[in-house]
């Protein structure tokens, strides 16, 4: 694909995530969305840049800041919004909420809110695929905070030992909730940590969607060709609070402002304008389009029904003999 065409597509996709997250924050204020809500504003380039490298039959495992991943993976926008409203039309029938988005048709396996909990699941998905001799990739998003969890090390070791097709995607936004990376890890060179397991690894600028896309494509191809797992560290930053309850006592406004200058949307906008394929009018039109798409999702969520209480106990155990959803 032509870089400019691809850039415009990426811009629109990132904008959709950005606007979706901002709208979600408003809806949280209106008490339409409850529970924990973790927004990925600032980190959009990673989800948007990685997804084109994945195929339909690949699997995606994510953590709790996953709206962007779900959107970029193609989980229907309205089903994500309805999920956060706790409605039956949600991608998890309203049972999971913001942190537990699941979507079988997209092979989107959630949505894990136990830090690092998705890592062995992705490893096992890769194992099943490898045993079937399929050339698929099991992609796993997590934050740098997960790298302090034992299960990260167990999963890296297992994936490397068995040469499993796992694409480890670490979004290093510098903070495990409110604990900065240097206050959490004795060694902050994440690529080095991955390499110590014999896993191929690179660091990528997570604020530049074109770099993310280019490197992710290469990494996914490597994994798909049977070379074993690959680890990508994306340097990024979370512009908004950790969740809706976070007074942000742990970082300075100056630091946030410095990173905001590297906003992935601004960055790409400038590039596209320099190429002469994008104008302010284009942007305004795109914002309108994206906003109306999101409003349609909000309307869908509003109109969607609640799961009947009589169905509360459904899906605790699947009935025997019924293997398909």
């Amino acid at each position: 694909m032509n870089t400019d065409v691809q850039g415009l597509k990426f811009y629109r996709e990132m904008l959709k995530i950005r606007r979706f997250e901002e709208r979600s924050a408003e809806l949280y204020g209106e008490m339409k969305i409850r529970g924990f809500l973790h927004l990925s504003v600032g980190q959009e380039a990673i989800a948007v840049g990685v997804m084109p490298a994945l195929h339909q039959e690949d699997s995606v495992v994510s953590a709790y800041r996953e709206h962007g991943h779900a959107i970029a993976r193609g989980v229907p926008l309205e089903s994500i919004m309805a999920e956060m409203f706790g409605k039956a039309g949600g991608c998890s029938h309203g049972h999971g909420g913001s942190m537990h988005l699941f979507h079988k048709p997209s092979r989107f396996y959630g949505g894990s809110a136990i830090v690092g909990g998705g890592l062995p699941i992705a490893t096992g998905l890769a194992l099943a695929e490898k045993m079937k001799w399929k050339e698929t990739v099991s992609a796993c998003f997590f934050g740098e905070g997960a790298m302090a969890e034992g299960v990260f090390h167990e999963s890296m070791n297992l994936a490397a030992l068995w040469k499993l097709p796992v694409l480890f995607l670490c979004e290093n936004n510098g903070y495990a909730m409110g604990t900065s990376i240097d206050r959490e890890l004795s060694r902050t060179d994440l690529v080095q940590k991955a390499k110590s397991y014999g896993v191929a690894a690179i660091q990528v600028d997570g604020m530049d969607v074109l770099s993310v896309a280019k490197e992710a494509k290469q990494a996914a191809d490597y994994v798909r060709s049977g070379e074993g797992p690959f680890f990508m560290e994306f340097k990024t930053y979370r512009f908004r609070a950790h969740s809706m309850y976070d007074p942000e006592l742990y970082r300075s406004k100056t630091e946030v402002d410095v990173w905001k200058k590297r906003d992935p949307l601004l960055h790409l906008e400038q590039k596209l304008k320099e190429s002469g394929v994008f104008t302010d009018d284009n942007r305004i039109q795109m914002e309108r389009d994206v906003d109306s798409e999101i409003e349609a999702a909000v309307q869908f969520a509003e109109a969607s029904s609640l799961e009947p209480v009589e169905d509360l106990m459904k899906n605790v155990m699947r009935e025997r003999g019924r293997s398909e959803y």
């Binding site: 991608c91 998890s92 049972h95 999971g96 699941f102 079988k104 959630g110 949505g111 699947r318 959803y325």
Partner: peptide
């Protein structure tokens, strides 16, 4: 299974 609304 429950968290995914019966999908997985």
């Amino acid at each position: 299974l429950h968290m995914s609304g019966g999908q997985f």
